[in-house]
Amino acid sequence: MRLSLLTPLDRWLAPAPRVSRVGWLPGARFAHRGLHGDGLPENSPSAFAAAKARGWGIECDVQKSSDDQAMVFHDFELDRLTAEQGPINVRSSAQLGAIMLSGSTDTIPSLRAVLDQISGAVPILIEIKSKRKRPVPAICLAVRRALEGYRGPHAIMSFDPRVGSWFARHAPLTPRGLVVTEENDKALVGRIRRHLWLWLAKPDFLAYDIRDLPSRFAASQRKRGIPVATWTVRSTELRERAAHHADAPIAEGAGVG
């Protein structure tokens, strides 16, 4: 199959967004899980406060609690980031909100609390975590509820194209992104899969693995008006690569500069 034949389908099935939807994204800089390090845990209120103070946008991760609340936490298990163990999704929002993040007095925040903390001062990218065999409507609905009434620049994103598809149908005013990595998926099947997921998610932007840039797929979508953010920018060299091949870095550590 000549992949160039898929380009007209890209334009038809996943049209580029109006500038008004994500015009705030190109030129922005995002702190990956907040400006964490030096006693500021990732995805913590302290890391988000540090990013906000420096004028950096915020990228964060969201998991669902057992009572269907959107909680800001990256892993599916509590073990790496707290003194607790086991899956996050079997704990209630109240239980999770009482768990301290290792190395600090911060506790696991809800998405609503983070939005209240940011209060529109900087843009936020909300990555919705999912598992392939787990349905996504409940976590998507939890995020939509947390976003109700929020006026600051924001967008959801996910590796899972089902998430973008859900928001396209049930919350079409919320900007949405597709997170992409080509790692271990560079053959023809993977190249076709990226187009299929694009058509399903109908994203307003892509969040691309910096290790894959430059990418023919990313460049073709960017050329037709879909902005490209890139993760995770961790060095000066990667900052330069991001500047050449993407519209917004998602950075941490030495990549913040």
Rank of each mutant, 00 (worst) to 15 (best):
residue 103 G to K: 00
residue 137 P to M: 11
residue 99 I to E: 10
residue 3 L to F: 11
residue 222 R to L: 06
residue 35 L to N: 04
residue 148 E to N: 05
residue 69 Q to F: 11
residue 202 K to A: 05
residue 64 K to I: 15
residue 67 D to Q: 10
residue 222 R to I: 00
residue 38 D to V: 05
residue 83 A to W: 09
residue 161 P to L: 09
residue 78 L to K: 08
residue 28 A to F: 04
residue 237 E to R: 15
residue 106 D to S: 02
residue 129 K to T: 04
residue 177 G to P: 03
residue 256 V to W: 13
residue 48 F to C: 07
residue 176 R to Y: 06
residue 157 M to H: 08
residue 244 H to D: 13
residue 233 V to L: 13
residue 251 A to Q: 14
residue 234 R to V: 11
residue 33 R to F: 06
residue 12 W to R: 13
residue 125 L to V: 05
residue 206 L to Y: 09
residue 127 E to T: 03
residue 76 F to V: 05
residue 27 G to S: 05
residue 9 L to T: 08
residue 23 G to F: 02
residue 70 A to M: 08
residue 58 I to P: 04
residue 186 K to R: 15
residue 173 L to A: 15
residue 257 G to F: 14
residue 251 A to D: 11
residue 227 P to A: 03
residue 128 I to S: 04
residue 62 V to A: 09
residue 250 I to M: 14
residue 171 A to K: 07
residue 236 T to L: 15
residue 128 I to F: 04
residue 86 G to Y: 10
residue 44 S to K: 07
residue 28 A to S: 14
residue 47 A to N: 01
residue 4 S to L: 11
residue 33 R to M: 10
residue 236 T to E: 15
residue 149 G to D: 10
residue 254 A to V: 02
residue 176 R to C: 04
residue 56 W to T: 04
residue 73 F to G: 06
residue 196 L to E: 10
residue 212 D to P: 04
residue 184 N to M: 14
residue 120 G to W: 05
residue 110 S to Q: 03
residue 112 R to Q: 01
residue 175 P to A: 08
residue 37 G to E: 07
residue 65 S to W: 13
residue 5 L to W: 13
residue 158 S to G: 09
residue 224 R to A: 10
residue 82 T to E: 13
residue 58 I to K: 03
residue 173 L to E: 15
residue 158 S to Y: 05
residue 142 A to I: 03
residue 222 R to Y: 09
residue 193 R to N: 15
residue 57 G to A: 09
residue 61 D to T: 02
residue 107 T to G: 09
residue 247 D to Y: 07
residue 153 P to Q: 13
residue 95 Q to P: 03
residue 209 D to H: 12
residue 181 T to V: 06
residue 10 D to E: 10
residue 224 R to H: 07
residue 168 A to W: 02
residue 28 A to P: 06
residue 102 S to H: 01
residue 256 V to P: 01
residue 191 R to P: 06
residue 190 G to S: 09
residue 221 Q to M: 13
residue 114 V to C: 05
residue 46 S to T: 14
residue 53 A to G: 09
residue 196 L to P: 06
residue 31 A to T: 03
residue 81 L to E: 11
residue 21 R to S: 02
residue 117 Q to G: 01
residue 113 A to I: 00
residue 59 E to Q: 10
residue 117 Q to P: 00
residue 228 V to M: 01
residue 62 V to T: 10
residue 6 L to G: 03
residue 129 K to S: 07
residue 190 G to A: 10
residue 44 S to G: 10
residue 106 D to T: 03
residue 45 P to V: 05
residue 117 Q to L: 12
residue 80 R to F: 10
residue 256 V to L: 15
residue 41 P to H: 09
residue 155 A to E: 00
residue 124 I to W: 06
residue 136 V to Y: 08
residue 136 V to W: 06
residue 116 D to I: 02
residue 195 H to C: 11
residue 184 N to C: 12
residue 108 I to P: 05
residue 131 K to N: 09
residue 62 V to P: 04
residue 117 Q to H: 00
residue 175 P to R: 05
residue 245 H to Y: 15
residue 41 P to M: 08
residue 98 A to R: 12
residue 68 D to M: 13
residue 128 I to E: 03
residue 185 D to R: 15
residue 85 Q to F: 12
residue 179 V to D: 05
residue 9 L to A: 13
residue 161 P to I: 03
residue 217 F to K: 01
residue 57 G to F: 00
residue 143 V to H: 05
residue 156 I to Q: 04
residue 129 K to L: 07
residue 234 R to Q: 14
residue 69 Q to P: 01
residue 239 R to V: 08
residue 20 S to G: 09
residue 28 A to C: 10
residue 95 Q to H: 01
residue 81 L to C: 13
residue 181 T to R: 11
residue 48 F to P: 01
residue 212 D to S: 08
residue 75 D to M: 09
